[in-house]
Simulated scan of single mutants.
Amino acid sequence: MALTITQQDNTIILEGSLNTATINNFTTHFGFIINAFKSVTLNIDKVTDMDACALQTLKTMYVNGVVNQQMFFVEGKRSEEIYEAFVYPQVA
């Protein structure tokens, strides 16, 4: 399944698969949005599949966001899985 990206103000809603095939498009789209807002919420309620590549990319984006003071938050059913991967990233 493809990835559908919808934006409502500073909330990005993802629907579909977040994997190796779709992560580059998401990263590009996310980059434009994070530059427009001080903080962004990423809603992953409708994400059906997330692979290790996508999880690693989200972690890298999180570290870059902390360094550049561009915060994003993850909400949704699988957000705990993502937060566990984010635990104590090396930022400095």
Rank of each mutant, 00 (worst) to 15 (best):
residue 39 S to Y: 11
residue 28 T to H: 13
residue 60 T to I: 12
residue 88 Y to Q: 15
residue 42 L to S: 01
residue 58 L to N: 00
residue 70 Q to L: 13
residue 38 K to A: 12
residue 7 Q to D: 10
residue 18 L to S: 01
residue 89 P to W: 03
residue 76 G to S: 03
residue 64 N to H: 06
residue 53 C to I: 09
residue 73 F to C: 13
residue 84 E to C: 02
residue 86 F to G: 08
residue 87 V to T: 10
residue 32 F to G: 06
residue 65 G to D: 00
residue 37 F to Y: 15
residue 79 S to L: 06
residue 32 F to A: 12
residue 15 E to C: 09
residue 75 E to K: 14
residue 40 V to L: 09
residue 11 T to F: 03
residue 73 F to K: 15
residue 81 E to Y: 12
residue 40 V to S: 02
residue 92 A to M: 10
residue 50 M to Q: 08
residue 54 A to R: 02
residue 80 E to P: 02
residue 22 T to S: 00
residue 63 V to K: 04
residue 78 R to V: 11
residue 52 A to K: 12
residue 1 M to Q: 04
residue 24 N to K: 06
residue 2 A to W: 09
residue 11 T to R: 07
residue 67 V to A: 15
residue 1 M to V: 08
residue 4 T to V: 11
residue 29 H to P: 09
residue 5 I to T: 00
residue 80 E to I: 12
residue 32 F to W: 10
residue 56 Q to G: 14
residue 16 G to Q: 05
residue 27 T to S: 10
residue 71 M to E: 15
residue 11 T to Q: 07
residue 2 A to G: 04
residue 16 G to L: 07
residue 56 Q to A: 14
residue 53 C to V: 14
residue 82 I to N: 02
residue 4 T to M: 09
residue 25 N to F: 09
residue 26 F to M: 03
residue 16 G to P: 02
residue 90 Q to C: 11
residue 34 I to V: 08
residue 82 I to V: 08
residue 53 C to M: 12
residue 38 K to E: 09
residue 54 A to F: 05
residue 15 E to P: 03
residue 7 Q to N: 05
residue 61 M to S: 15
residue 55 L to T: 07
residue 4 T to Y: 07
residue 4 T to C: 05
residue 91 V to M: 15
residue 36 A to Q: 12
residue 51 D to H: 06
